[in-house]
Simulated assay, not measured.
Amino acid sequence: MLISNGDMEKRPVRLLSKEYKKVKKLYESAFPAYERLPYLPLVLLATRKNTHFDAYYDGDTFCGFTYSVMSKEAVYILFLAVNDVHRGKGYGSAILEDFKERAGQRALVLTIEPLESDAKNYDERLKRLTFYERNGFKATPYTYHEGKEYYTVLATHDHLDEKELETLFKRAICYMVPVKLTK
Rank of each mutant, 00 (worst) to 15 (best):
M1E: 05
I3F: 05
N5W: 02
N5M: 04
D7S: 11
R11S: 12
R11Q: 14
P12H: 06
L16E: 14
K18V: 08
K18C: 08
Y20M: 06
K22T: 11
K22F: 08
K22L: 15
V23E: 00
K25E: 15
L26W: 00
E28Q: 08
S29M: 13
F31Q: 03
Y34I: 13
P38N: 15
Y39S: 01
L40A: 13
L40D: 09
L42V: 14
L45M: 12
T47A: 11
T47F: 11
R48Q: 12
R48I: 06
N50C: 05
T51M: 07
H52E: 10
H52P: 01
F53P: 04
D54K: 00
A55I: 00
Y56V: 02
Y57V: 04
D60F: 09
D60H: 09
F65M: 12
S68P: 00
V69S: 05
M70H: 11
S71Q: 07
K72L: 10
K72N: 13
V75C: 07
L78Q: 14
L80R: 02
N83F: 15
D84H: 12
D84S: 13
V85E: 15
G88E: 12
G88P: 10
G90K: 11
G90C: 08
G90H: 09
Y91T: 03
G92W: 03
G92M: 01
G92T: 03
S93A: 14
I95A: 02
E97F: 07
K100P: 01
R102N: 13
R106W: 05
A107W: 05
A107H: 01
L108N: 00
L110S: 03
L110M: 09
I112N: 11
E113N: 08
P114Q: 13
P114M: 12
S117G: 10
A119P: 09
L126D: 13
L126K: 12
K127I: 06
R128V: 14
T130R: 11
Y132R: 02
E133W: 03
N135C: 12
G136F: 06
G136P: 04
K138R: 14
P141D: 12
P141E: 14
T143C: 09
Y144E: 01
E149S: 13
Y150Q: 07
T152I: 07
T152H: 09
V153M: 06
L154C: 10
L154S: 07
A155M: 05
A155Y: 05
A155L: 03
E162K: 13
L165E: 04
L165A: 06
L165G: 03
E166H: 00
T167G: 15
L168Y: 03
K170L: 04
R171M: 10
A172L: 02
A172N: 00
I173D: 03
I173R: 00
Y175S: 02
M176L: 11
L181S: 01
T182S: 13
